[in-house]
Design a protein around this nucleic acid. Structure first.
Lengths: 203, 203
DNA sequence: ACTTTAAGGTGACATTTGTCATTTTCTGTC
DNA sequence: GACAGAAAATGACAAATGTCACCTTAAAGT
């Protein structure tokens, strides 16, 4: 088809990648020209095919979908980028928007909406999952870089001392950071703090 | 179609549910008669439609896919049950087999294999993802029921005392369980123990 | 009836963690 | 060089956690 919309899909879960590709290919005005299972592959496939739309997951091995979007934008690609991801995380949305992403959908959304969303984006509109719009209004990440780093390591089960060694800080400082992180998140200890931070996409 | 294979799909992620359903419906010998987004719904839809195959995810809100399989087996349903899940976890596989599951596939597998796997199961064979077969040979879950329960709550950030209250045990006993769980998993504290257990699918 | 065994509990102790006030060190800026 | 602010460290204390040896109780065998 001469004027069909050319689509590239990037998604690391093979089953979903294949199923969504089939789904979109059924639409007579769409044509899935390539499939990628990671960001790097998607990038080179974009250079090769110059698609109208790139539909990408965020969490993938190697280059994430957001980094991919940033690269494409920097290199002046005209493809309209759409994110299709699992969780509603306000942090991601902001970065995605900054990278010129035009659509942000959740895997929780019914599959019937996907094709329609793509057509909306092609016609110049932006599409953001309603769930996300809500999230975007709530609190921003209150953690400092150090708090985030210590918390991430603590969540892996490292002791205060091991964290201190790894980050070249003293034990006391690490405990201070973890303590203030817990306070900010209203958690009663580092474990709960890590859980909360992770749930909100801050970790 | 009179003798087409009737399929019910249970999967909480709407996008995958819809896409896979479309994919299978394209096969001329298949017919997706119902879709469910949780175990309870799937159970009642099975009673209503008596499908030939139930394709289900494991992790779903409410009743898990494994519990669903156990229920169906107990109630004497003849539907062949197939699991389609994200991670290769040896613990799950054993329980699934005990519940009479005939197929165990990973979402990492290419979508093209799905239809073929279903036909194999219908013809009486069992289908287990090769990845899983490997996993099945490694170590079994060493945790006792109590160790697992305490660990699960600890992983949410509950204190020893809160866990004790919730499980009607003394603080000392809870600490004993957590301590022995850590020992079994070679972890240096409850946080690391929980992380390890979760990674191996024992939590 | 007499072990055995497992689940649960106790007490003691060392270590780690959480909290907070205070101090030191490092930076940029005027 | 002096000063304000941030980042990092310190010290002290209470509380929580990890470990271990040992006790109690209630089945389950024999």
């Amino acid at each position: 088809m001469a004027d069909s919309i050319k689509i590239i899909i990037a998604e690391d879960q093979a089953m979903l990648l294949g199923a969504v590709a089939t789904l979109l290919d059924l639409e007579s005005d769409f044509e899935v020209v390539a499939k990628a299972k990671d960001g790097e592959t998607a990038l080179s496939l974009c250079a090769q095919h110059h698609p109208d739309v790139l539909l990408t997951d965020i969490e993938m091995p190697g280059m994430s979908g957001i980094e991919l979007a940033e690269q494409l934008q920097k290199n002046g690609f005209t493809a309209k980028i759409m994110i299709l991801t699992t969780f509603a995380r306000s942090g991601y949305l902001r970065r995605a928007m900054d990278a010129g992403v035009r659509g942000y959908l959740l895997k929780d959304a019914p599959s019937e909406e996907l094709a329609e969303a793509i057509r909306k984006v092609i016609s110049g509109r932006k599409v953001i999952d309603p769930e996300l719009v809500m999230e975007a209004f709530d609190e921003a990440d209150p953690l400092s870089e150090k708090e985030r780093k210590t918390l991430k390591l603590a969540a892996d089960g490292l002791t205060t001392e091991q964290i201190a060694d790894k980050l070249f800080l003293s034990k006391g400082t690490v405990r201070n950071y973890l303590s203030s992180a817990s306070a900010k998140l209203n958690a009663q200890n580092r474990i709960e703090a890590a859980r909360i931070a992770r749930q909100r996409g801050w970790l």
